[in-house]
Design a protein around this nucleic acid. Sequence first.
RNA 1: GGGCGCGUCGCAUAGCGGCAAUUGCUCGUGGCUGUAAACCACGCGGUCUUUGACCUUCGGGGGUUCGAGUCCCUCCGCGCCCA
Length: 399
Amino acid sequence: MEFEILKKSKKTRARLGLIKTKHGVIHTPAFVPVATQAAIKGLTTDQLKMIGFESLLSNTYHLYLRPGDGLVKKMGGLHKFMNWDRPIWTDSGGFQVFSLGAAIEHGVGKIANIFPSEGEQEHTITGKKETFTKISEEGVEFKSHLDGSKHFLTPEKSIKIQENLGADIIFSFDECTSPLHDKKYTKNSMERTHRWAKRCLAAFKPKFKSLKFKVNGRAGLPAARQALFGIVQGGAYKDLRLKSAKTIGKMGFDGFGIGGSLGKSKADMYKVLDWTIPLLPEKKPRHLLGIGSEEDIWEAVKRGVDTFDCVAPTRLGRNGGALLPGGKRLSLRNADCKDDKSPINKKCGCHVCRNYSRAYLNHLFRANEMLGPILLTMHNLSFMEELLRSVREKIAKEK
RNA sequence: GGGCGCGUCGCAUAGCGGCAAUUGCUCGUGGCUGUAAACCACGCGGUCUUUGACCUUCGGGGGUUCGAGUCCCUCCGCGCCCA
C-alpha cells in the first residue's frame, strides 16, 4: 500500500488523498462500508460498485470462526471468495474483545450515549454479567458467540488470520475499551495494546521487509504488499491519548486507526481527535474506527481523518431507518409513511429515491419483505458515498 | 328434539373465587457509531392532581359471595355428536 496526499487544506487539517493498493485505489476521505462476514448484508458487490464504493471492511474474528480463514485462503482469498476485486480492510478482532466483553458487562457502546445529560443521575455499571471474553497479557480467550467453543486470539494469531484472509489493509490486534472503564483500567489496557502492537508488527515483519521495496512492477502501480495499521487507544483521557499516539505513531505502521472509547459525547470524541492526530506521522493515512454520522465525518475530516467505517448506515437501513441530510433520520416503519407518495428524500439521486415511494417502503417493512432492508441499505450507503464525495469536493475546491 | 363443548383488549390464546386480567401476532413509539443487531426496548380499556388514584371491562340478563372472567340459573350466538 502507498498513500499519496493530493492536497492539504490550509484552514483545517483536512486532506485529499489516494490510498493505492494491489486491488486498486481509495480516494480519501472515504467511507468504508462494513462487511463483517464477507458480505454487506443485503447488497451484491455489483451494487456496491454502482453506488461507488472503492473498499470494504471485513472482520477477522467472525471469518476466523466461520467459515475459517484457512477455508477462505483455500478458496483463493477473501477478494475472490466474496467476489470483490477492490481493496478490502480487515479489523483485527479487537472490537470483539469489547463487544463480547465490556459492552455486555456495561451495557454500552463505545460512545457512551447512555451517559445522562448534565444533572441527571449517573449510569452505574450493571455488574457481573456473563461475557464471552477473558483478557490476559498473552491474548484474549473468546467463547464463540456461535457455539460456545473456546478460542484464543493473540496478536500473532490475528495477524496470521488476516494474512490468510488476504485483505489489503489489516489492523493490529487491540483492546477496544469501554467508556465506563476507569482511567486505571484504560491505562493498563492501552499499555497492553501497545505491547500487542509491537508483537503484531513483529509477526508481520517478514513480509514487511521482503516486499517493501520491490512492489512496483510497472510504473505507477501502487505498492502491492499488505499494509498493517496500528491502533491508538487511551479512552477519553488526554495524557493517555497523547501517549498512545506518540507510541503507536513511531512504531513503523503503514497507517493508523483511532479506536477505543471516544468518551461520553461528540465533543469528547472531537477532543480525542484534536489530541491524537497531530502526533501521528503526517504522511500516513488515519482511519477513525467505527464512526459514522454525517456530523462526525465533517468534524473528523477537519481534524485530519482520512477514512471511516461504520455499521450504522447498514444496520439502520435494515431496521427501517433512512439517513437524511443534516443528521436527520426517517423511520420508514412509522404510520405517517403509510400513504406517502414521496421518496425518502426528493433531493437524493439514489436508485431508491428515484424509484420508490415511502408508502412502498413502509409496506415492505410491514410485510417483512427482505426488499425493504435491501433498499434502505442501498439508500443509506448511497447517502454515505454521496456525503464523502461532497467532503472530497469541498477540500478540492478550497483555495 | 337429545347430549356435550365453547363465547376474554383487532386476531389468536391463558385464566378454574382476590384481576384491568397471561402469552404470541398485529398495531404505536423510541433506539441503533471498528455488527452476538432483517435487531432491541417500551406502550397497547379510559380518565386524572399519572412512583398512584378513580371509572368501565371477559356474549346479554339475573343470582350466590366480603369479593365473580372464574360458581349457579336463564337467554343469545357458535361448534361437534346422536336422532
